[in-house]
């Protein structure tokens, strides 16, 4: 287990440098000028040149090098040793071109927790929702209840979230007066967006658990348990569910990663200050430091997340080690 962790942690910086280089080349090649307001007045060329120089935008090699120097913490370390002025952060991700007053560190620091809260809440709701409907469906296959849950699952998968989200916003805050639109910071604010985000995951979990549950329920040992005279709910919860849950457990890992970062549409509809917006806006604005910052953080998160899931697997089921 320790060997696994050490191995992955050694791989991490190498992976990140490769990703940085590729991202840098792609984003540098984006058309347009990073610093100017597209719809605004174009300043004299001498002014534009100096604006570009402030951020090394006139020289890709210097930009590439300086970014590495700052982001790896080297700059901070050198400044500490020499006793000169240190940068604001150990790992300095640079400034944002568009949001001038915020460093990329601040942007990620303020939006990543929001996305994690949203993503994990969605996964929790998806689990509760998916497992319940899955089990109901499995108990009476092809019954009315099963058809209804199938229908709900289909809707969850196929309706785009901006439709569901807008419909929920119109139903709850606007007509019923429950909760607020475009607010974030209260427990109630989390529910509607998390619910919307959870639907596709819930639908998938429902189908997954229904299938494996039906398989399990037809097994000999379940029949034995029933024959022993155990009550129905004990058979299902104690004996059937724990087996049927395993495929769901292995699905949660990638689903959680996806829910945390793939919530751009939800963020738009519910006006949530999460990290998904940066993935889209930064590329649109050619905001180089933000593009690189979120890409690097996301890559690091994926690697670490996989590591955590692997470690947890071994903890939950010691036979895998």
């Amino acid at each position: 287990m320790i060997g696994l962790i050490v191995r992955r942690l050694i791989q991490l910086p190498i992976i990140l440098i490769v990703i940085y280089t590729i991202t840098f080349m792609l984003s540098w090649a984006l058309p347009g000028e990073a610093l100017l307001n597209d719809e605004g007045r174009r300043p004299p060329q001498s002014v534009i040149d100096q604006m570009n120089r402030q951020y090394d935008l006139d020289n890709p090699y210097r930009f590439y090098g300086n970014y590495l120097y700052n982001v790896t913490g080297l700059h901070w370390a050198v400044a500490s040793v020499r006793g000169t002025a240190r940068p604001d952060y150990i790992f300095d991700f640079g400034p944002s071109f568009k949001h001038d007053d915020w460093s990329v560190n601040e942007l990620i620091g303020s939006s990543l927790p929001v996305s994690i809260v949203l993503g994990l809440s969605a996964i929790i709701i998806a689990l509760v929702l998916g497992l319940t409907t899955g089990i109901i469906g499995a108990l009476k296959p092809n019954s009315l209840a099963d058809l209804v849950t199938l229908l709900v699952a289909l809707v969850g998968i196929s309706l785009p979230s901006f439709v569901i989200g807008t419909a929920l916003l119109m139903l709850f805050p606007l007509f019923l007066g429950i909760g607020g639109v475009a607010s974030w910071g209260k427990l109630t604010d989390v529910f509607l967006p998390a619910f919307t985000l959870s639907l596709p995951f819930a639908a998938y979990i429902a189908r997954l658990s229904r299938m494996s549950m039906i398989d399990v329920l037809s097994m000999e040992y379940i029949r034995t348990a029933k024959a022993k005279g155990l009550p129905g709910y004990r058979v299902i919860l104690k004996h059937a569910l724990k087996v049927a849950f395993l495929p769901v457990l292995s699905y949660i890992g990638p689903a959680a990663a996806f829910a945390m970062t793939g919530s751009f549409v939800i963020e738009m509809v519910f006006n949530i200050p999460g990290i998904g917006q940066h993935f889209v806006d930064a590329v649109r604005n050619k905001d180089l430091f933000v593009i690189m910052g979120v890409t690097l953080i996301f890559s690091a998160m994926l690697v670490l997340f996989n590591l955590v899931v692997d470690v947890l697997y071994r903890w939950v089921d010691p036979r895998i080690a």
Partner: peptide, 8 residues
Amino acid sequence: DSVADYSG
């Protein structure tokens, strides 16, 4: 060192 769009 700190020019911007409207410096002109």
